[in-house]
Design a protein around this nucleic acid. Structure first.
Lengths: 244, 244
DNA sequence: GAGGCGCAATTTGTATACATTATGACTTGA
DNA sequence: TCAAGTCATAATGTATACAAATTGCGCCTC
């Protein structure tokens, strides 16, 4: 709650990036705090308290709260303000299902429209990085964190290749649901990073081959499969050991 | 531009619905104006002019513009304000593809989770209404408008049955794209209302039978098929008026 | 003691004044 | 003539004062 990184760095700090208004800065800081869990679910966010802690007036704070509410991170009720949104387990799982469908469509678009050079290079680089990383026999915590970044870059390159803004926006919406970001998958994808990396290769092959149907199906299963691990993790049951 | 319905009805009009702030009222009025095509695409919306025309201060206007931008109706650039978003033909078509995938997922959820009584009754009623309407041999303009409402109710009942807020939100986002609302299909679905109504029956049957796969596939094809008609209409002649 | 009424304190909503940034026209120099 | 710089203008961004709504507490009544 009293996170030092959150409180005001002073009005003369002035590292203002060009083109950034206070509203945008404040939005980003509050968003980060929420995603970091600095506020508990359901907690109300009082405009005055926030503005005092952040060292700005209520105006940019109100603007930020409105933004975050439309992102789905906050609940709003007229004359009653904003509160941190609660996500039920069902909502978190559903978000995965939705993300699976959206990313699958992105993969289809990429296959239909062809990979721009930039995205093709990014994907090939990241696939090679993954190959190198997974060549090691042992995968420790550190390797999984690195792989998480690789995973994120892969998926972002696909979205970018889809060249569809609405799709990008919607996937971003999915990422505002806790546990639903591909940056967070490390927490429950421990078991088979290798299988997931192989999925990436196949998806890339399908896109290169302009096989839209296969790209879509593979991506859908790829994302949806995490849902199973997630459900297991959320219900607190241990991961089953399999052969292979 | 100078739409009488848009300009201020006077500050003493006071038909304020309970729980509605000025920000919300203004948001609704500007949204309606945009969807009705009162502003041309790319036009900038000046805060002062809007606030004068609407008889309120800049504060609720700014709030409204921010809302509409996050709905995707406006573009925002820091220090440069808001402008009516331009939608390319590609974006409009893509929105249909996205809507197809989302509504298909909604149909799947409905099949998996079962239809609540309220939605089941709504769908059965609307299917029967459609049967009656289509029993006539001739379908004029008026019948198609009536069927458009029937179509909308059917699709909304499915969303509602999916019981997934994020899905509902995203479908709503799709509807903010011109020509992409199921309330608008009359303009290019002239050709086979009967086929589309038959789709509705099959989708309902699949949901009743808890056949999630079939419900999803049918709904996806049902929505995506309109895309074909849309592409034909858009390429055939210039864009008809936005909205409605 | 339970329930309802009303006031006061707190919080959000709105208006407005001021600060800051973009924009375009004008000037000035090469 | 053109380019670059400057300054005026007009727009957006922010702060703050005030209005309206909600909420909780205390009191009164039954």
């Amino acid at each position: 709650m009293t996170d030092a990184a959150f409180d005001t760095p002073g009005p003369d700090h002035e590292d203002a990036p060009r083109g950034a208004t206070r509203s945008l800065t404040v939005t980003e800081r509050i968003r980060t705090a929420i995603l970091a869990g600095d506020f508990e679910a359901g907690a109300r966010l009082h405009e005055v308290r926030l503005s005092e802690r952040l060292g700005v007036s209520r105006t940019p704070v109100r603007s930020a709260l409105q933004s975050l509410a439309s992102e789905g991170l906050l609940e709003y009720a007229p004359n009653r303000g904003y509160a941190v949104r609660r996500f039920s387990t069902a909502e978190i799982v559903d978000a995965y299902e939705i993300r699976a469908v959206m990313e699958a469509l992105a993969a289809r678009f990429a296959a239909e429209r062809g990979l721009p050079d930039q995205e093709r290079e990014a994907i090939e680089r990241v696939l090679a990085d993954g190959d190198d990383l997974l060549a090691r026999t042992e995968l420790g915590e550190e390797e999984r964190i690195v792989y998480s970044a690789i995973n994120g870059t892969f998926h972002e390159a696909i979205h970018s290749a889809a060249r569809c803004r609405m799709l990008t926006d919607m996937v971003r919406l999915c990422h505002s649901v806790p546990h639903s970001s591909h940056r967070n998958v490390i927490s429950f994808e421990h078991m088979d990073v290798r299988r997931r990396h192989d999925d990436h290769h196949r998806i890339y092959d399908a896109i290169l081959a302009c096989d839209a149907y296969r790209a879509e199906m593979l991506m859908r299963e790829h994302v949806a499969s995490v849902k199973t691990s997630l459900v297991r993790a959320l219900s607190g049951r241990p991961l089953p050991r399999r052969g292979r």
